[in-house]
Amino acid sequence: MTDQPTPARSPFDDIAPALGRYTSEVLFGEVWERPELSKRDRSLVTVACLVSLYRSNELPFHLKRALENGLTREELVEAITHLAFYAGWPTAASAIAAARRVFEEVESSQ
């Protein structure tokens, strides 16, 4: 995946090199590679959590990653729609806006 943080590209390296290293090596290097869940399932769980917690800064990256990990646009939209009833309408509305931007970006780059 091209957007995956690496030690050289981590957005934290300039100010927090340890956080950049933990992101690259532990989070994406160990946690995401554990075999107990597929990357597709991990992406669905992550997107659901980010939507529910209204983590709009991280959501676009993980929506792109979810598409790369095999989730479809329809599945992501359905998950966000479902979460509207559990996480709140405003969080779902914001997530749909982010998804729209990500889908347009992905479509235009193909």
Rank of each mutant, 00 (worst) to 15 (best):
79 A>Y: 00
86 Y>H: 11
19 L>D: 03
5 P>E: 05
71 L>Y: 00
8 A>P: 00
45 V>I: 15
53 L>D: 13
106 V>N: 04
82 H>A: 05
72 T>Q: 10
107 E>T: 05
76 L>Q: 08
109 S>N: 13
81 T>E: 12
79 A>C: 07
43 S>E: 01
56 S>R: 10
78 E>M: 00
19 L>C: 02
86 Y>I: 01
78 E>Q: 11
49 C>H: 09
31 V>N: 04
109 S>L: 10
92 A>V: 03
46 T>Y: 10
27 L>G: 07
4 Q>W: 03
14 D>Q: 15
46 T>M: 13
81 T>N: 14
22 Y>K: 00
30 E>M: 07
91 T>Q: 13
89 W>C: 04
53 L>R: 14
73 R>A: 14
90 P>H: 03
1 M>R: 06
96 I>M: 14
24 S>W: 11
28 F>L: 03
34 R>Y: 01
60 P>A: 05
65 R>K: 12
58 E>R: 02
77 V>S: 12
30 E>K: 09
44 L>P: 06
41 D>Q: 13
72 T>K: 12
101 R>Q: 13
5 P>Q: 08
75 E>W: 04
14 D>V: 08
24 S>A: 15
38 S>F: 12
56 S>L: 13
50 L>D: 05
91 T>W: 06
66 A>C: 07
41 D>L: 15
75 E>S: 09
35 P>L: 04
79 A>D: 02
105 E>Y: 03
85 F>G: 15
95 A>Q: 02
86 Y>K: 05
25 E>H: 09
17 P>G: 09
82 H>T: 11
26 V>N: 04
9 R>Q: 09
28 F>D: 11
26 V>S: 01
1 M>F: 07
93 A>E: 14
12 F>D: 05
21 R>F: 06
59 L>D: 04
74 E>N: 13
12 F>A: 12
22 Y>C: 10
71 L>N: 11
60 P>H: 09
26 V>H: 08
8 A>K: 12
74 E>W: 00
106 V>R: 14
78 E>T: 06
104 E>A: 15
86 Y>F: 10
67 L>M: 05
26 V>Q: 04
94 S>L: 08
4 Q>S: 04
29 G>W: 04
59 L>A: 09
100 R>F: 06
70 G>Y: 00
33 E>C: 11
33 E>L: 08
92 A>H: 05
30 E>S: 12
101 R>Y: 00
96 I>L: 15
25 E>W: 01
98 A>N: 07
97 A>Q: 11
56 S>W: 13
87 A>W: 05
49 C>W: 10
65 R>M: 11
109 S>C: 03
73 R>I: 07
1 M>I: 02
42 R>T: 01
49 C>T: 15
